[in-house]
């Protein structure tokens, strides 16, 4: 392991951390603006031009607020839970190729931290570990609503992991590899080669479970919005609560990268156009998360379970079986 590789990796890690923590902040701005426009409001307007500095104001507020640890909580677990959410979200980024390889001053840079040959499984596994944040936070809070939220987290997690895995199985069978770079190479020939044309069902299923995986609106009931509290985050304050937020937004960004990489051609042949295309697709999926939040109510917990086990899972299994038969004959 030479030192050039080591330095390159450290630089990549730092760059990704900085960019995506900043993006998580800017993501909240986008979310407020888009929700506001969809609800015919103005959104943040007072701090800076068009409210752009609202992000900085929120950051200062979160960093300087008192970090309150309530009396009856299980202190170490309570303290570590938000860190788990944020840390695992960023760990998942290690196996995502954000851009095609490019050259800087004659040095070829691969914008992926670790090109492991099980990339997609690693990303999903890490995002799954991220569910421990809400779960532990809710259970350690000594608050009944938080505990309820933790129970819902466990339910969503245990159910939707199945759909995510099964829906991905069919594309994996076609590509014959778990590396996201191999997925990209498979679809490098242009729009006609995209996996979404041969696996539309898997695409929709994976997209639906991406909402569950990130805990976004149709499945936002892990935060109990309708009880006018913040679920697992009820007892949190200041930066610990902010870490939950950063984790959620970073997860949204990363899954918005993963969906196009698997189904929609990724960065294509690796040209500048392809790279911009990937960023464009990522922006669309991120926008879609916000759009859904403006347009849809949350589902009920029983509807959530019903949807997962009675609708999505059978469809996913049938999809895998059909893909297998088509590939065999």
């Amino acid at each position: 392991m030479d030192s050039a590789y080591l330095i390159e990796t450290i630089i990549k890690v730092v760059v990704i951390l900085l960019i995506f923590s900043a993006l998580a902040g800017i993501g909240t701005y986008f979310e407020r603006k888009i929700l506001a426009f969809m609800q015919r409001r103005l959104g943040p307007m007072n701090v800076g031009p068009y409210g752009l500095l609202q992000v900085a104001a929120d950051g200062i507020k979160l960093f300087t607020k008192e970090d309150i640890i309530p009396t009856n909580v299980v202190t170490p677990i309570f303290k570590i839970a938000p860190v788990i959410t944020a840390a695992t979200a960023f760990m998942a980024a290690a196996a995502i190729p954000f851009l095609p390889p490019f050259e800087v001053f004659g040095y070829e840079v691969h914008p992926i931290v670790a090109d492991v040959n099980i990339g997609i499984l690693y990303v999903l596994g890490m995002m799954a570990v991220g569910f421990y944040g809400p779960l532990l936070g809710g259970m350690a809070s000594a608050n009944k609503f938080s505990l309820l939220s933790a129970a819902r987290t466990a339910a969503v997690f245990i159910s939707y992991e199945v759909v995510t895995g099964l829906s991905l199985l069919a594309p994996i069978m076609m590509v014959g590899s778990l590396s996201l770079i191999d997925f990209n190479e498979y679809q490098a020939g242009g729009i006609g080669d995209w996996i979404v044309w041969s696996q539309p069902v898997a695409f929709i299923l994976f997209w639906i479970s991406a909402f569950a995986e990130t805990g976004r609106t149709p499945f936002h009931l892990i935060a109990n919005d309708h009880e006018i509290i913040d679920g697992f985050g009820t007892e949190y304050s200041g930066m610990r609560w902010g870490l939950f937020f950063i984790g959620e937004y970073a997860n949204m960004f990363f899954i918005s990268f993963v969906i196009p990489l698997i189904f929609l051609g990724g960065y294509g042949d690796g040209s500048l156009f392809g790279a911009l295309g990937l960023l464009g697709k990522m922006s669309f999926f991120f926008f879609f998360f916000l759009w859904t939040r403006a347009a849809w109510p949350d589902v009920r917990p029983d509807q959530l379970m019903w949807l997962c086990w009675k609708i999505l899972m059978p469809i996913a299994v049938i999809n895998v079986v059909i893909t297998g038969f088509v590939m065999m004959f």
Binding site: N72, L124, A128, L135, M139, L147, I158
Partner: peptide, 22 residues
């Protein structure tokens, strides 16, 4: 990672049902 996060998560669910975990 995937199997044991899921498995231990199920244990948490049981823990929630049977104890006051705090």
């Amino acid at each position: 990672i995937i199997v044991y996060t899921g498995a231990v998560m199920a244990l948490y669910a049981f823990g929630m049902m049977f104890f006051d975990t705090t």
